[in-house]
C-alpha cells in the first residue's frame, strides 16, 4: 500500500490543499484523495508534489506491506 506524508509536509509549509493543488496543477480534491490514501498519484504528479514540498520522492511516498 502506498503511504505518504503529503498532509504533514503541506502543513509544515502552511499550504492549504487548494494552494498545493495550484502548485502542481491539480484540484483541491485530488490533494485530499492523495492525503487520505484513496488515490495513488502518477509518477509525474508524485514528482511534482515532491518538488513543491521540497523533499525527495522517497521521503514523500513509500510502500508499506499490507497486513
Amino acid at each position: 500500500m502506498l503511504r505518504n506524508r503529503v498532509k504533514e509536509l503541506r502543513a509544515r509549509y502552511g499550504y492549504t490543499q487548494s494552494e498545493l493543488g495550484k502548485k502542481v496543477d491539480v484540484t483541491r480534491q485530488t490533494i485530499a484523495f492523495i492525503e487520505k490514501g484513496e488515490f495513488s498519484p502518477s509518477i509525474t504528479l508524485a514528482l511534482k508534489l515532491a518538488d513543491a514540498l521540497q523533499v525527495e520522492i522517497g521521503e514523500l511516498f513509500w510502500l508499506e506491506e499490507e497486513e
Binding site: V26, T27, T30, I31, F33, F39, P41, L45
Partner: peptide
C-alpha cells in the same frame, strides 16, 4: 476529468 484524481473517482 480535470485531473487524474477526479478521473480516478
Amino acid at each position: 476529468e480535470e485531473d487524474e484524481g477526479m478521473t480516478f473517482i
